[in-house]
Amino acid sequence: MGFEPRIVGFLCNWCSYTGADLAGTARIHYAPNVRVIRVMCSARVDPTFVVKALAEGADGVLICGCHPGDCHYSEGNYKAMRRFPLLGRLLRDYGIEEDRVRLEWVSASEGKRFAEIVDDMTERVRRLGPSRVKTLLEADRVER
């Protein structure tokens, strides 16, 4: 069997999680590789969640929030948006490919968009191959 990426998804409760539910209600099929963890707002996604997921063996991490201007908490997604490049820089410094971590906006009515994002991300991560973060960390631990 080929490589099946394991992707952890952090979805905000109000827009993106509802959008993902809508994909279900509308029976829009998509790749089964994303495992969703619900948070109230994309601003709750602590960069350590992303690092933790990669360290635990995730091949990719997807963060979804409300579209800019639509945040249930008025501006949480802007905070997520500002934090994201910093996290990206950190991951780059550690040699983690950019495509492995992604921030997207999905509204409560965008079930189709959510499905497309999952499919697209799964494909991109599949092309990158398995993440080596967990293996490297374990090797590092053994050496010490």
Partner: peptide, 17 residues
């Protein structure tokens, strides 16, 4: 349901998820 059985048709992959 919404995020699994309704959006996947491969029984093995869906059960795994």
């Amino acid at each position: 349901r919404e995020q699994c059985s309704w959006v996947h048709d491969d029984a093995r992959a869906a059960t795994d998820k």
